[in-house]
Design a protein around this nucleic acid. Structure first.
Lengths: 148, 148
DNA sequence: ATATATTAGTTGCGAGTGCAACTAAATGGA
DNA sequence: TCCATTTAGTTGCACTCGCAACTAATATAT
């Protein structure tokens, strides 16, 4: 169980943490200052918008984003209160429900995207060459591969 | 202000988010299950432990970790309550204070490190070759470089 | 058929967080 | 010197989160 790990490797890990923090803080702040929805709301609306018929079961949303079931439950309640999506009881499984993107939700996504995109560019993409991006994608895929 | 950004680039960004989330959730959970301090406490104690004489001004801690001043203030209060560090009024600037690592804090760091290290290995390092790490370090440095 | 276990989503609770307002001390001009 | 400004850290407040307990519905086993 004891693993060797070098200073160098720890540094890489530390840099990942800092990049994530710098970027998300900057983007969150830009969204908020421009009167746009938060990152987490964006994520939820986005996965729903990508689903067939723009509707998705709650559990499937939770699997795709960084939020527990209970967190998602409340998040969806807030999104519904704002009119960005609505719930619909699931006929086949009466325990469950669908989240369905509304037109207002679609517009909120569209309106937030330029700010979000700009943040990703500034904090991340613009600082790299296209070779860097290719290489990063490769390496990230390795990391995300399920453990053997 | 309008920037082009490709699907591919967005994917890379998304993978970064997922890697960060997967890793920190796994490590946080491992620490907790093994009765160790949380990641954020670890970070705070670590930066203090690295400082000369194991003491650091609050503002300097906040600059180095992912926490606002107010968050840090309360975090330090909790760490002090547990005996992991103690405060000391700053003689030169009576507004300020130092956080000083205690022996108990040092032991907590030492005891948590194998779990933390193991998490970093499993979720990150073990999945990459040493060339990958080198390349990642290079690319991460570019991203972290202050904007021109 | 019926009891048991599992699953989907909700909710009470305690803990943590950021923002803005606050206190106390230091700094900088006029 | 004296007053305005800035800075270090704290705190009230509102909000969010995860955990665990809960309800309701479904799946499984006998």
């Amino acid at each position: 169980m004891k693993r060797k790990i070098t200073e160098n490797q720890i540094d890489t890990w530390g840099k990942l943490l800092r990049i994530h923090s710098n970027s998300t803080v900057a983007i969150e702040s830009a969204l908020s200052q421009n009167g746009q929805i938060s990152l987490i709301w964006y994520d939820v609306l986005l996965v729903v918008s990508k689903a067939p018929k723009k509707r998705l079961r709650f559990a499937e949303i939770a699997d795709r984003i960084v939020l527990t079931r209970s967190g998602l439950s409340r998040c969806i309640a807030n999104l519904e209160k704002k009119g960005y999506l609505k719930r619909e009881k699931c006929k086949e499984d009466k325990r469950g429900a669908f989240a369905i993107l509304t037109d207002k939700g679609q517009r909120a996504l569209k309106s937030a995207w330029p700010i979000y995109r700009n943040g990703i560019s500034e904090m991340f993409i613009d600082r790299l060459s296209s070779e860097d991006i290719t290489k990063l994608n490769e390496i990230f895929d390795k990391i995300l591969m399920p453990k053997r």
